[in-house]
């Protein structure tokens, strides 16, 4: 690395260090990253861009694609919202209360990360089918869960839960007990302390967790297709439509839907990053 005199510090790519191995490790890491991750994604965007913006718009707005996108985004959003409530509750109970089996439950929260999605898919389908353990409870009332959008919702709740719990939990864990005591000495009831002091402090983490759960749910495939019924216009999700298009060798159509989904995931990521940056700037003074 050549160090320019005087202004050197400002124009060098890497700050000089006594440790060896920077060039080779960074070189390898970026090459591998480019080949495995970036190249395929660039080809995808390039392929879709051959259609032009109008072409993508046309594919994305055909009724069947629109319906699939709607099913994916609406059920993902609903599942993320349910997880926002119950994920926070689970995190609260795991952090604040001591009860037999707490550690086991804590470990179980990561099950959706560890269980292969196809396994979760057929298990949920078996449970919520009209003759399944849970489906049978609803069947007499004429309520169908599996093979309807309700089934997709169930699968997406399963998939998204750990994202919310695992982002809220550490923040709750590190929450200073003194802040709650301060609230009590100022005359607040326990409920006021929880709703005005503790929960508002969890909001940035909660938004992050919900956005992560939502982004994952939108792209989810394995756990959904077994329970969804996959009826076009009713319970067909966007990722399944990509697979269908591929099987028809409609690469352009598949790419167009994929690009729409990618864009939306990146918007979700952008939201996460700006929420975190904003809350860091305001509340942590960084």
């Amino acid at each position: 690395m050549t160090v320019a005199p005087v202004m050197g510090q400002r124009f060098t790519f890497v700050r000089p260090s006594a440790l060896p191995g920077f060039g080779i490790t960074l070189g390898f890491a970026t090459t591998y990253l480019s080949l495995i991750v970036l190249l395929p994604l660039i080809v995808l965007v390039w392929r879709a861009s051959a259609l032009g913006f109008d072409g993508i718009w046309q594919v994305a707005t055909t009724p069947r694609v629109l319906a699939a996108l709607e099913v994916s985004f609406v059920t993902s959003a609903l599942a993320a919202l349910l997880n926002a409530v119950f994920g926070t509750l689970v995190a609260w109970v795991l952090v604040r209360y001591d009860f037999p089996g707490r550690r086991l439950l804590d470990a179980a929260v990561d099950l959706p990360f560890a269980l292969p999605t196809a396994v979760a898919g057929i298990a949920l389908a078996a449970l919520y089918a009209p003759n399944g353990w849970i489906g049978a409870l609803f069947a007499p009332w004429g309520i169908k869960i599996a093979f309807t959008p309700a089934g997709i919702f169930i699968a997406l709740v399963f998939i998204g839960l750990p994202f919310v719990v695992r982002t809220v939990q550490p923040v709750l864990q590190d929450f200073e007990c003194e802040v709650e005591e301060a609230s009590a000495t100022l005359g607040a009831t326990r409920m006021q302390t929880v709703f005005r002091v503790v929960l508002p402090a969890l909001v940035p983490a909660l938004v992050t967790g919900v956005a992560l759960a939502f982004a994952r749910a939108v792209g989810e495939y394995g756990s959904v297709i077994f329970i969804a019924g996959n009826i076009p216009f009713v319970s067909e999700i966007a990722p399944l439509l990509i697979v269908t298009r591929l099987e028809e060798f409609d690469y352009a159509g598949a790419s167009a839907i994929a690009v729409v989904m990618l864009t939306i995931s990146f918007v979700a990521l952008l939201i996460i990053n700006s929420v975190q940056a904003l809350s860091r700037r305001r509340y942590e003074g960084a």
């Binding site: 920077f22 792209g219 591929l246 989904m261």
Partner: peptide, 29 residues
């Protein structure tokens, strides 16, 4: 272990596959 330009971009790119639908990743190949 090093300070270099574009580090935060590199970190975001490493996490990229998490925000791509598995079906889309298959599609790219």
């Amino acid at each position: 272990k090093f300070e270099f330009r574009g580090k935060s971009l590199l970190i975001s790119l490493i996490d990229l596959p998490f925000s791509v639908s598995p079906v889309v990743s298959g599609l790219t190949f």
